[in-house]
Design a protein around this nucleic acid. Sequence first.
DNA 1: TGTTAGCACTCACTCTCTCTGAGTGCTAAC
DNA 2: GTTAGCACTCAGAGAGAGTGAGTGCTAACA
Lengths: 346, 346
Amino acid sequence: MELSQRKRIILQAIVEDYIATAEPVGSRNIAKNHDLGLSAATIRNEMADLEEMGYLEKPHTSAGRIPSEMGYRFYVDSLMRRYSLTVDEISGLQKTMDRKYDQLEGVISEISDIISKVTKYPAVVAFPKENKGRVRSVRLVLIEERMALVVVVTDAGVVKNRRIHFSTDIDYSAIDAVSGFISKNLVGLSAADITPARVMLMYEAMGEYGELLKIVISFVLECLKEESARVYIGGASNILNNPEFSDIDKAREFFSFMDSRENVGKMLSLMGDDSDDISIKIGSESGVESMKDTSIVVANYHVGDKLRGKIGIIGPTRMDYARVVSSLEMINDRLAEILGRMMGQD
Amino acid sequence: MELSQRKRIILQAIVEDYIATAEPVGSRNIAKNHDLGLSAATIRNEMADLEEMGYLEKPHTSAGRIPSEMGYRFYVDSLMRRYSLTVDEISGLQKTMDRKYDQLEGVISEISDIISKVTKYPAVVAFPKENKGRVRSVRLVLIEERMALVVVVTDAGVVKNRRIHFSTDIDYSAIDAVSGFISKNLVGLSAADITPARVMLMYEAMGEYGELLKIVISFVLECLKEESARVYIGGASNILNNPEFSDIDKAREFFSFMDSRENVGKMLSLMGDDSDDISIKIGSESGVESMKDTSIVVANYHVGDKLRGKIGIIGPTRMDYARVVSSLEMINDRLAEILGRMMGQD
DNA sequence: TGTTAGCACTCACTCTCTCTGAGTGCTAAC
DNA sequence: GTTAGCACTCAGAGAGAGTGAGTGCTAACA
């Protein structure tokens, strides 16, 4: 059944009042604060309907109503108005983000602090994962006597290196030859392409440097492997500003969950990957038991189509969704710019 | 004034009971639970003395006594008995730490979880800082057309790299020549040695590749710079198991502090660097206002004499110091082994 | 002189009870 | 369909009494 326009307005008023005050909302207050031209009694009737339909809940008989998960969902999908950040907020944000970063790691770890500062909620950021990379370049470089470096550059422009020690002296030109051979045979390949058969062939062709080859190849494979999402968390303490977490057990549940980056990463990976839109999970929608009283708002970011990650915030279900969504969009845009500038040169 | 043997025993009993129960300790309980051969009244007299001397405090008139900071300090310095980890604890620890790590980062980030699991307190780990490094090796490697990699290996065995893009094609042998020139001029130098005068000389000698040189040198300097301590935090939620943090304001104060790695890093850096012993700051001794109700226990670890970092825990002043100290020692030993094995090959 | 028993006193905590006020649902009138 | 009015509910605040763990002091004891 469709909601009448009047019910929608009342539901919206309730959700927004509750988000603002964290107190159950009563009919009288709505009549007073929102100019709906309706008496409290009428609103009461509508609220009774909305409750019956599942959009509202009563904490107890003589309290006002609060939105149910379904109420929030309807609000987010159909009622929420776009929140415009104030000029001050925007220029503040611009300023914070307007500095030179030269390492991906640096941007990503700082962005979580920025998000939490802007939204006043705990922020989570997933370090970009590489998208089924291929070897773009692999080189073996003699760094000093008996020590060489394998340098692998992947499709996504990520550079990794590892040292290799030799027990006997090795010739400069030998290293170069091996390096060239490996490069010729591996560049352009994905992890799946580097089959045991191919490795065997190479191994045989290598002769005395077979062992060296093995080390290099295993490192290359490691570089191509999808790494488990690294997660940064910022401003976790912000959660304590919300009255729903002044119960110490609720707080502990939250912080225990956040203590494990793995948990957080898993939860993030359950949120839609592909959509360019912001995705929102309200309460139990996240499917994570210990997060059933919190909502998660996540945006995806990409660098080209190779690197992709997520930024988001975690807050109580009673969260200022409108504000969070706008802020995340804003930050995501700026982040895209920064990352584009950083990686775009490739 | 020296404490009599009897006062020491009573103080010890009070500290240990309070650590165990988090309840103010009364004279009767001490008489009952510790076989001191003294009546409650006598103990009461001694407690009054200890309070007057500053070792004990009363939360209010009709409660028992709790140790003051000075009381804890005396306990830690003079009374604390060595705690022996149980066989189970030890073998559990051995097992957790007995796996192959191949990245420094991996060990360090995992160690904080291990510490907090063992001690049940929030753990902090400072990523090792390099000790006024020198350039051991610097190489310029052509990775693909128009892209080269600067690879710097420092004294401490740390490898760093950065990509350089060229707007025009550059010759393989030219890169080699530049690489050799830079290497010859920079290897063995510390940051202080790379003076502007020296850079100018090199710049002039380089001719058309001067710009390239500049980029390389600025990167080398960056590599040699002491990096601001990176800090890992594990098991922060553990703090909430202590009744002194069931007050939400106390909890917020704690988590706000921990939210800023910078804060934590600064606090860690205030703890003695050189001592091989474990250092303990009790309450306000840390000098950090918002940590005045917590104590910090820190151990230093080194790899050779080049890399050094810190591991430690943060807990309420009422902390099981004996247990924490033993656990940290144990973990630090194992960590030294692991790091030695990892880095020792250099 | 040090130790102990005894006792009056203190005070946080808990429990119970009452009161208050915000809010509801229902009914009847508009 | 809307609204005014009214009886009813119930969480939360506040007051008061009772409890018990603890103290300090005094006087007696070894």
